[in-house]
């Protein structure tokens, strides 16, 4: 790692800590009340879902429409694990229960991702979209028909252990992992598949392996996002994870820019706040929401950030550069 990257990581990490501290401060003095806090938690969960889908759709270039299926698998696994732990090892602190449940949820979702990815990723483009859509629905129908998930009645009694603090740091961790992954050797292999699969194979990139890997990681993080959702809302039913949920996540990715993690973050913030902010328009709320989406897509078809990333360092650099140029000009 060269000096510049380390510096960039440090600046951004510092910015994240400052944001966290600022939010905690505002919460303590009551400016961010629990209403805003609830919205922030949903934003963070949407960031996890969108960022993980971005790996599959934006970086790997595989259009998938079944992300809600992985979210569902993770949510149900995490919820039932937590219920079991709570019943047998009730003395464990909440954070431990949450972490164990999420890790198991992540692993199971990854396995589901591999199982679906190996046959599905032989297909490309539209065909893959259709087959992932099908698999997403299959997961939902299975949940509907097995007993321990509560079927259509839903699963109740899930420990409510997701809090702003732990969701925030888990989101930071997941985005960090995804960022470093996409900028690593494996990440470049993944991007090369998006750019030209035939050329990538010709230069020796094992396309199937990297496709399945990217898909599994995306599925795994979606499962963790689903787990956090389950532990926040404390009630699950299969209809939560229908096709429309997959589309909602995809909309965040497309709006933010396919291939830009920070774009997904910004889009997740905008699209989660928007329906709440439009509440005062009552019945016209969804009309306005759709209208704004259309406008944004017309003026920014590549998404808010395209494929570029936002970094606090670039702001710092620009500021520094401007200062230097001013000094230079004054000298001249």
């Amino acid at each position: 790692m060269n000096k510049n990257t380390i510096k960039s990581y440090l600046v951004n990490f510092l910015a994240v800590i400052i944001i966290f501290a600022l939010m905690k401060l505002l919460m303590n003095i009551g400016i961010i009340n629990r209403y805003y806090q609830g919205i922030i938690v949903f934003i963070l969960i949407n960031i996890i879902l969108a960022a993980s889908l971005n790996l599959a759709t934006g970086f790997l270039g595989q259009l998938t429409l079944g992300h809600a299926g992985f979210m569902a698998a993770g949510a149900y696994v995490s919820a039932s694990t937590a219920i079991m732990i709570k019943a047998n090892f009730g003395w464990l602190p909440n954070i431990a229960i949450l972490l164990i449940s999420l890790i198991i949820a992540g692993i199971i979702s990854a396995i589901v991702g591999v199982a679906i990815g190996i046959p599905a990723l032989r297909l490309r483009g539209d065909y893959l979209a259709i087959i992932t859509l099908g698999f997403g629905e299959v997961i939902r129908v299975i949940i509907n028909n097995i007993r321990f998930t509560g079927g259509a009645q839903g699963l109740t009694g899930i420990p409510r252990i997701s809090t702003f603090d732990n969701v925030f740091w888990i989101t930071v961790l997941i985005v960090f992992i995804l960022y470093t992954l996409t900028h690593s050797r494996q990440g470049r292999a993944i991007v090369s598949i998006r750019e030209d699969e035939v050329a990538a194979e010709a230069v020796g990139v094992k396309t199937t392996r990297f496709k399945v890997m990217g898909f599994a990681i995306a599925a795994s993080f979606a499962g963790i996002g689903g787990g956090l959702y389950a532990h926040y809302i404390a009630f699950l039913d299969p209809n939560t994870f229908n096709f429309m949920r997959s589309v909602e996540i995809l909309v965040i990715v497309v709006l933010g820019g396919m291939g830009s993690l920070t774009g997904s973050i910004i889009a997740a913030i905008v699209l989660t706040i928007l329906p709440e902010a439009l509440r005062s328009f009552a019945d016209y709320r969804l009309l306005l929401y759709s209208f704004l989406l259309i406008i944004m897509m017309i003026f920014r078809p590549a998404g808010l950030l395209g494929t570029s990333e936002f970094s606090w360092k670039s702001i710092y650099d620009r500021y520094k550069y401007r200062k230097e140029s001013i000094i230079k000009r004054e000298k001249a």
């Binding site: 009340n33 629990r34 209403y35 809302i233 939560t240 709440e276 509440r279």
Partner: peptide
């Protein structure tokens, strides 16, 4: 009265808003 679209996430937000705002 707040709309929830029948969605659980929206219902939680609507409830929080009713209570806090």
């Amino acid at each position: 009265a707040y709309d929830s679209k029948g969605d659980k996430t929206e219902a939680v937000n609507a409830y929080n808003r009713l209570r806090d705002q």
